[in-house]
Every structure is written in C-alpha cells, then in structure tokens.
C-alpha cells in the first residue's frame, strides 16, 4: 500500500477544496443550538476535562510555575475525588525535565512546543534539532508551528517537506502541527494547510499558538475537522484535532464536542484524538461540574488559580 507521504508528494495542494464561508458559519452556528442537560452535560464536562492540554507558554514561566501547573493537573479539585486527569501538560522545551519529574507515574502526557514557537522563524536545521532535543528530554508529544511565511508565498512543497522532516525527527512522539489559522487569511488556506500537514504525517492538526488573535473559532475548527474526515476517507488514517486559544468557557467546549461528534463521530471522542489547548478552561469546567453535583452556583474563590 502506498504511504500517506508518497500520496502527498503527488498532490497539488493548490487544488484543495474551496470553502463556502457563509455555509460554513451557518453550519458552525447550528452546533450551538443543541440542548445538553443533566447527565449528558456532566459527562461532556468530564470528557472535556480529560481532553485538556493544560498549557503554560509564557516568557515568564519559571520552574515553580511549571511545578505548580503539574500539581494542578493531578489535583484538579480534591474536594471531589475521582475526577479525570487532564490529557497533557504543554510547555517550552526547557521545562520538559521538570514536568517529567513532577508527573512521574500520573499517566499524563508531556507535550512540548518546538520549531521556534510561536513564530517559527528559525532555520529548518534548528527546528529539527529543537525537536530532537524535546524528544530526547522526554516529550511524548511535540507541537510544531508551520512556516506561515513560506505557506503564504505558495511554497507548499517547502512546508510539506519541513513537516515531514520534523515528523521524522519526532520518532515515536506524536506530532501536532499548528497552522496558526489567525495568520493564514481565509478558510481556503486553512483547508489547504490542513491537507498539507496531514499528508506530511501530522498526528494532530492544531489551530493556533494562542499568541495571535483570532485563535480557535468554531468555523475554523469545522474546516479542519472536515479536512480530517476527507483525509480519513482517502487514506484510512485517523488524525487528531486540537483547537487552542480562546476556549475558556465550558459551554463553548461542549459546543466543540457536539461539532466533533457530528463531524467525525464517536471514534474521535477521546483524548487520543481530540484535545483542547487551554489554560483557564479547566477551572470553568470544574465550576460547572461542582454546580451540577451540588445544585449551587459556584465561585472561583474556592478553586485553585493555577
């Protein structure tokens, strides 16, 4: 059987499907009209919690901050035992060792950004060596950024080769490819970048770095989910999805789950194939879970900040 990369080298990505913007937005808005109550809501919230990549990607990140985040990941709200853990902790490469030590035995994945995050404006050789460094340090997942400049210049082969090279450098670590949709300009390009990333070997495609506005939106995520679906029909390979940035409320997260289920189906409804990249979503989900369990509206004062 012919591999995805071999197929990809023969595809002219400028012929990726075009997106009907108006239809897309109407379809995306439709997902926000579903009524999700009681047990369904509670299960959705628990699933959301389990899909979060708890993230800190700041210049001011310190050892203490990262340790604190790792502690939070394992003790989300101890007043309610039995809550699921988050899916992963996402940090800069320099913090991987600290995370590894703090998360030992917890089963939580260690994700690291690489390839000159967030701009990606470093030479390819450095991107590859940064990726290798991250994997050697112990990252089980690598979040790379694509070269948006090259992409917008129409150098699709360059972008394709770069992603394939990074995937190669990842070894057994799973590769998430950040498209930074806020910089791509329109939905046609989001679709095109999604196709390039998947054929080049991405295990996940991810909307944003969180450093650019707009970050994840429902229409953008829908374009990417549909790209994943079409790719799956063509190749039989599943690719994960990670919207990141701007999802801070539980209600919105539940809408994303509805969109996921109605676009890709149950096989994707777990944290192996779907993640939320977020830092403040976890607390809002916890507030809502406790509200569901106690029947009383909650206050942020009674939950850990980070």
């Amino acid at each position: 059987m012919i591999s995805s990369i071999e197929m990809g080298t023969n595809i002219d990505f400028s012929h990726s499907p075009r997106i009907d913007q108006v239809g897309l937005e109407e379809r995306a808005a439709r997902f926000t009209k579903r009524s999700i109550k009681k047990e369904t809501k509670l299960n959705g919230l628990l699933l959301t919690l389990n899909m979060i990549d708890l993230t800190t990607l700041e210049g001011k990140d310190s050892e203490g901050k990262v340790k604190q985040l790792c502690y939070k990941a394992q003790h989300l709200h101890d007043a309610y035992p039995g809550l699921p853990n988050v899916a992963a902790i996402c940090v800069y490469p320099s913090m991987i060792k600290i995370v590894q030590k703090a998360l030992k035995g917890s089963g939580i994945n260690i994700a690291s950004v690489a390839t000159g995050f967030p701009s990606g404006q470093v030479p390819k050789s450095l991107k590859i060596s940064e990726t290798k460094f991250a994997v050697a340090e112990g990252a089980t997942e690598v979040d790379m950024v694509i070269s948006r400049g090259k992409f917008l210049e129409g150098e699709y082969n360059y972008v394709f080769d770069e992603i394939a090279a990074i995937k190669n450098a990842c070894g057994s670590a799973r590769l998430k490819v950040i498209l930074e949709t806020g910089e791509l300009g329109n939905m046609d390009k989001v679709r095109r970048a999604s196709d390039i990333a998947m054929y080049a070997g991405a295990d996940f495609i991810k909307t944003s770095t969180g450093k650019i506005q707009p970050a994840a939106t429902m229409p953008v995520t829908l374009v990417m989910l549909e790209a994943i679906r079409d790719y799956y029909y063509k190749t039989g390979r599943m690719v994960g999805m990670k919207p990141a940035g701007g999802i801070s409320k539980s209600k919105l997260a539940l809408y994303y789950l509805v969109m996921l289920k109605e676009t890709l189906g149950d096989a994707w409804m777990n944290n192996h194939w779907f993640r939320f990249g977020a830092s403040s979503l976890a607390n809002d989900v916890l507030l809502q879970i406790v509200k569901e369990k106690t029947g009383t509206y909650q206050s942020g004062n009674y939950f850990s900040l980070d």
Partner: peptide
C-alpha cells in the same frame, strides 16, 4: 433561593 445560595 438562588439569590442567597450563589457562592459568588
């Protein structure tokens, strides 16, 4: 009851 029970 909601006015008085809300934790915030």
């Amino acid at each position: 009851p909601w006015f008085v029970a809300h934790m915030d």
